[in-house]
């Protein structure tokens, strides 16, 4: 279903680091027909909790439901929609490129402009690392032009709110 009021939302989730938590969340999205644009999950400084960043495309009514349904899952400690507040987003890209001699200078120039890094080289390939907001990642990928992409890996967005705010590791009743 396409919907003209759809927009991009970025959500942070704190979840008990327990058996099946990830599949509970993934299952909720698929069962209720919510889309997951990307999802990132990893442990935090509190080893009993993992943090997820989920990016989803939907309309306003649906995002309210997504938030409430996530909050309802017993494993979820806290959920926050970062979209509307000032927040920082970063994503990491690893790109393996096939690069002939004539293209090397061009690639180095692009790497400089985007502040990317070349992290591996062979006689025919370059592997590049880039960190930034998703738009920057996309702009970089789109600027490859004739340089052939052999492999592309993205972490998906990571989000954190600006300033002093933090996601509490307790749910308020």
């Amino acid at each position: 279903m396409t919907d003209n009021n759809e927009k991009r939302y970025i959500i942070s989730v704190l979840v008990e680091n327990e058996f099946g938590s990830l599949s509970r969340i993934a299952g909720l999205f698929s069962a209720r027909g919510y889309n997951i644009h990307c999802l990132n999950v990893a442990p935090t400084n509190d080893e009993s909790i993992s943090r997820m960043t989920i990016v989803t495309m939907c309309n306003e009514q649906k995002i309210n439901q997504v938030m409430k349904q996530l909050d309802k899952l017993v494993d979820i400690v806290n959920v926050k929609d970062l979209t509307e507040e000032t927040h920082i987003e970063r994503e990491m890209l690893l790109l393996k490129l096939k690069c002939n001699k004539n293209q090397r200078e061009e690639l180095k120039r692009l790497v400089d402009i985007f502040r990317a890094r070349i992290i591996d080289v062979t006689d025919t390939t370059y592997t590049v690392e880039l960190t930034g907001a998703s738009e920057k990642i996309l702009a970089f990928v789109n600027s490859m032009g004739k340089i052939k992409i052999i492999e592309m890996v993205r972490s998906g967005a990571l989000g954190i709110s600006r300033g002093r705010d933090s996601l509490e590791n307790i749910k308020r009743g």
């Binding site: 008990e16 017993v74 400690v77 590791n169 307790i170 749910k171 308020r172 009743g173």
Partner: peptide
């Protein structure tokens, strides 16, 4: 105590 489960009253 379930920190992740606090139904509203």
């Amino acid at each position: 105590n379930l920190r992740s489960y606090k139904p509203a009253i």
